[in-house]
Design a protein around this nucleic acid. Structure first.
Lengths: 113, 113
DNA sequence: CTTATATGTTGCATTAAAGAAACATGCCAA
DNA sequence: TTGGCATGTTTCTTTAATGCAACATATAAG
């Protein structure tokens, strides 16, 4: 992503760590399955170089490459709970403490399909 | 990411859905906290436009923008378990079923620091 | 040792991601 | 209705992410 954003160029430690762990986990999962970079990359429709970037936790790589790797390894469902509103206790409390409504409500909160 | 990869241009259904849900969850968390796009974007060091892309689940946006949004909202720790090798039952089984080692083992599996 | 294979590295061309400014739209409240 | 504010949209410029080829390195096996 040209005009590299600050967060991608120099991410907070926590983000950098999370990315490295995620990439390393993806690598571990791939090796356990005895797959080459090229095997997984081909399934995803990307090059082995970009998949290697994913496994290194490169911050500027497209999010679809990361999720695609999880998908190709059968690990995508583990992402379902991340930022799940039902588990966002702090958010729920904040929402209740304010009176009725919050900010812009959007048409129907985009429940696509 | 120019030379747009297939997975970012036309992601598998599951990936597209996961991205939309993740973006929507981030949006919900932000609204619950009564924060504007600009507020969160400023904390992250990106523009409100890119954060808006995140909330839309844009596949080509840098992964750091997504994780940064989770970080800025205090939701990053929920990512720890994703692709955690300890929870990768299929991978563990595969690893045990093959005899000793798998593919290239890397110097020390990159346990940096 | 040698060979085979997987991955890392370098350099280049392509092209779209990110930022910004200006304007449009939509929502809420008084 | 009106005004104010958050967000969406358009257009443009900048510049780095992606893919690829060629070569280097590392690991495992014979």
């Amino acid at each position: 992503m040209p005009r590299t954003s600050k967060i991608a160029e120099n991410p907070p430690f926590a983000v950098e760590q999370a990315l490295k762990r995620l990439g390393d986990n993806i690598r571990t999962a791939r090796l356990r399955r005895k797959l080459r970079l090229e095997d997984v990359a081909e399934r995803m429709g990307i090059s082995r170089f970009t998949l290697s970037d994913v496994e290194k936790g490169k911050p500027t790589t497209a999010v679809a490459a990361y999720l695609g790797a999880l998908w190709a390894l059968g690990l995508l469902d583990q992402l379902e709970e991340v930022a799940d509103p039902d588990r966002d206790e702090e958010g729920k409390i904040l929402e209740r403490s304010r009176a009725p409504r919050v900010a812009r409500t959007r048409k129907a909160l985009d429940n696509d399909f």
